[in-house]
């Protein structure tokens, strides 16, 4: 699934900021509204990091509860499915469903905004201070490609030139 793409992006971000130093920890803030499975992410992170300065680094995940804010009445709440939110048995007997609550539980308005819970952010990394004298090429040796073979945006600030990877 896309945890492979996401892990690859996390490793790229970490390597960019490590600037040639070996990485020991990558701290990631992961909001509960994202559809990223933490175990899957850790699994692919280890694979994608092999043969790079991220090899063997520990991935620390800070899971962030979601918080919605109503644009109409200002009420704030966690939209995660709660038994008291999701009892639809009266209307749909036997449905046995627990619903998330994205409509404001106070005034029932739509259009609430997300205060927290959408994060997929590399918060910090820990590096060993001595730069490796011959750091391995991060993209050339990565065993599992998940997009273009080069990362032109590592040159900072440029609009990336696309690498065609289509079959046609």
């Amino acid at each position: 699934m896309h945890e492979l793409s996401v892990s690859s992006a996390i490793v790229d971000t970490a390597l960019k900021h490590a600037a040639g130093r070996r990485i020991s920890v990558v701290s990631l803030r992961l909001g509960k509204l994202r559809q990223v499975v933490p175990d899957s992410l850790s699994f692919y992170f280890e694979i994608v990091g092999r043969d790079t300065l991220c090899e063997g680094a520990r991935l620390e995940l800070e899971l962030i509860d979601a918080l919605m804010s109503c644009g109409s009445c200002g009420h704030e709440w966690d939209p995660a499915p709660q038994p008291e939110h999701g009892d639809v048995a009266g209307e749909f007997p036997g449905a046995g469903l627990t619903l998330p609550q994205f409509r404001c539980p106070e005034c029932e308005a739509a259009g609430a905004s997300v205060v927290r819970g959408d994060e997929l952010e590399v918060e910090s990394i820990e590096v060993e201070d001595e730069a490796e004298t011959t750091p391995p090429e991060p993209s050339a040796s990565r065993p599992v490609p998940s997009g273009p073979a080069t990362r032109p945006w590592q040159d900072q600030g440029e609009v990336p030139t696309p690498v065609s990877n289509s079959g046609s």
Binding site: I10, L28, E123, S124, E126, E128, D129
Partner: peptide, 23 residues
Amino acid sequence: MHRTKIKVAEDALDANTTIAHAN
């Protein structure tokens, strides 16, 4: 071995978002 913590605070899909903006 001395270690340094570096603050990154960067969205992991930042690269994709940058290209999306270019598109």
